[in-house]
Design a protein around this nucleic acid. Structure first.
Lengths: 355, 355
DNA sequence: TTCAACTCTGAAAACGTTGCCAAACGCAAG
DNA sequence: CTTGCGTTTGGCAACGTTTTCAGAGTTGAA
């Protein structure tokens, strides 16, 4: 029949056993369909200037051979990969998974693939991931910078023309790039003000390590709220550490057992809120509680947990849209988007101070 | 100085304004370092057979030009992409985010990048994602099949030599491929047996749509436990639907308000558990409750929620390891790994039947 | 000195696309 | 029967790597 060429490799043949069958190329398709290579390319990429007859021949051959365009070659030739990279801290953290979901949605709508990697807060790992993404020539990057990220390599890539948007924290080392952040200061302030409005004056603050931008901003908001209300900040009521660390929950127990225990607690991030909540349930203590960042089941606790909600999905969506604007060639000065928080009242933040 | 060639494009030059600067290639590096192209390639890929002197020259040139290897070209030439694709239902679901995290960890250790996409349970979308991944020539795929996936395109890719491992549900359409599943039937059975052991005889079952493999397996486990205990299955106590759907929570309220209300509830997946929990809190009703799949804060509820825990991280890890074994050329018959569940007793499952 | 066996190096041919270019074709008008 | 124009078509040169191959040096032994 004249089509003894470019048959898909026979997997069961002893010769090919163990050998990954190599896929047919456009050349194979062209040979099979009896047309030129360029015609195949045109059909595959939806170019209309192909006669219906030939187009049908090509499609037929494609089906018969199980041809799939090799995007590595396409990318090499075209210089764009139709993919973007996302660096977050941890997929499991709902904040980041919501962010990732929103980014994915925007990318999907744009026919772009999403490469996601978790930095696990490790600057070395972040660096490795970013450089790897750049080697793959992603069209752009959305990055949650790690604390202590050296900015140099980021700046190099940026200068090399890789668009970047930073999320959740400002770009490190004074890099001039787009960013999408939550108003951490204002959010924390409003949460603490809420506690103050309910009569609390001794308010503990549990936050992540100070070296993290958002953590320190929130502590700043906490301090500011107290100061505005004329309450002296008591440093023994402030605990800043990784929520998963050993002494985190114990610090709360210690405070509550102290001479002048706090009557309310401000948990400056979702990990803290959950760790503290668990500790409170265990000891059956009920100080007022306001958490920063909403979480699933906050409304199913008793009492429901009052939170300062932020909007990770919005952050992701806005960042992705801004990134694609840059990819499409937008050249203006860098944008800083700051998202307002919303206080959600559920009960735990309205507990009056125990006297 | 002789290096007036291959300078990085000047972004501020009016000519290049708006034009993405094209990155230096190995050729540029070679010219700059005054060596051959192959030598640069060798240095970049860590080939040792290069004299220290030349190697230093090359590294220097690389630094000066900000060269980064173009992986599209590398991939095209080598035929492997060092990346794998993961298709899950939804990143936000903790089951899948834990799975994804584990897969990422294995991939990272293998220097492989991870492409993740959410099918959102849409067979069309799954198909599009899988084909897109295949066009990118991922080295392998880990897939959560959607219900009603047609198997044909999967089989084609499989035959074309793309290794695949299916997770959470068996491969569709009788495809012969590796899979890693939870023992849904056994897990559900043990959860319901636990309720029976605590004296319950009227046990409601809330599950996802029956068309989902895991959902129907769990319902089967529920039925089996009842039958073994000599309890007649009451179909009005079984509700199968998407947990997010309108009537899901209301169905529970209706049952509890009925003539012969259930004294216990078996929630066959984490979404159901959470939705039901919220409903129960709202109405202050306290039937016994056992949920399938553990969740954050299950221990912080009052009472703590007894669950049949499954291990999404293990599923992901095992699937990824199996996938890499296939990528490395392992040819044996397909493996089916079934993971046991573990009952975690926390209180809600030990509530005695109200009389 | 010669030859063999190294090590190091660069030229050149892939890899599978895309996109430019020119040739070939069809058809209508002159 | 030309001429001209517009539409299809195929050839061919990129794209930036890796890899093979053979040549050029170097060394050591005969």
């Amino acid at each position: 029949m004249g089509h003894d060429k470019a048959e898909p490799a026979d997997r069961s043949s002893p010769v090919n056993a163990g050998r990954p069958p190599s896929r047919p190329t456009m050349n194979d398709v062209a040979a099979r369909a009896g047309v030129g290579l360029s015609t195949v390319s045109r059909v595959v990429s939806g170019d209309t200037r192909v006669s219906e007859a030939r187009s049908a021949l090509v499609r037929q051959a494609i089906r018969e051979l199980g041809f799939r365009r090799n995007d590595s070659a396409r990318q090499l030739r075209r210089g764009a990969t139709e993919s973007i990279g996302l660096v977050i801290e941890d997929v499991v953290d709902p904040f980041f998974s919501h962010l990732a979901q929103a980014v994915e949605e925007v990318a999907f709508a744009r026919n772009s693939l999403l490469l996601t990697s978790s930095s696990t807060r490790d600057a070395q790992r972040t660096r490795r991931i970013v450089l790897e993404f750049c080697a793959r020539r992603v069209d752009g990057l959305i990055i949650t910078p790690s604390e202590s990220d050296e900015a140099e390599y980021l700046r190099e890539e940026l200068d090399a023309g890789v668009p970047m948007v930073f999320v959740d924290r400002p770009p490190p080392g004074g890099i001039d790039a787009d960013s999408v952040l939550t108003d951490d200061f204002g959010g924390a302030r409003s949460g603490v003000e809420h506690l103050i409005a309910h009569g609390h004056r001794r308010i503990a603050c549990f936050s992540d390590r100070d070296s993290l931008y958002s953590a320190s901003e929130r502590v700043r908001g906490y301090r500011h709220a107290l100061e505005v209300a004329g309450i002296t900040v008591d440093p023994t009521l402030i605990h800043s550490a990784t929520p998963e660390s050993e002494g985190f929950a114990r610090a709360l127990a210690r405070m509550l057992a102290g001479a002048e225990p706090p009557t309310a607690v401000f948990a400056a991030n979702n990990r803290s809120t959950i760790v503290l909540l668990r500790e409170l349930v265990r000891h059956e203590m009920r100080p007022a509680l306001v958490g920063f960042d909403d979480f699933e089941l906050a409304d199913a606790m008793s009492p429901g947990v009052t939170v300062v909600a932020q909007f990770p999905g919005e952050i992701g969506r806005i960042a992705a849209e801004q990134l694609f604007r840059r990819i499409d060639g937008a050249r203006g000065p860098s944008h800083l988007t700051s998202l307002r928080t919303r206080l959600i009242v559920r009960g735990s933040g309205e507990v009056p101070p125990a006297t």
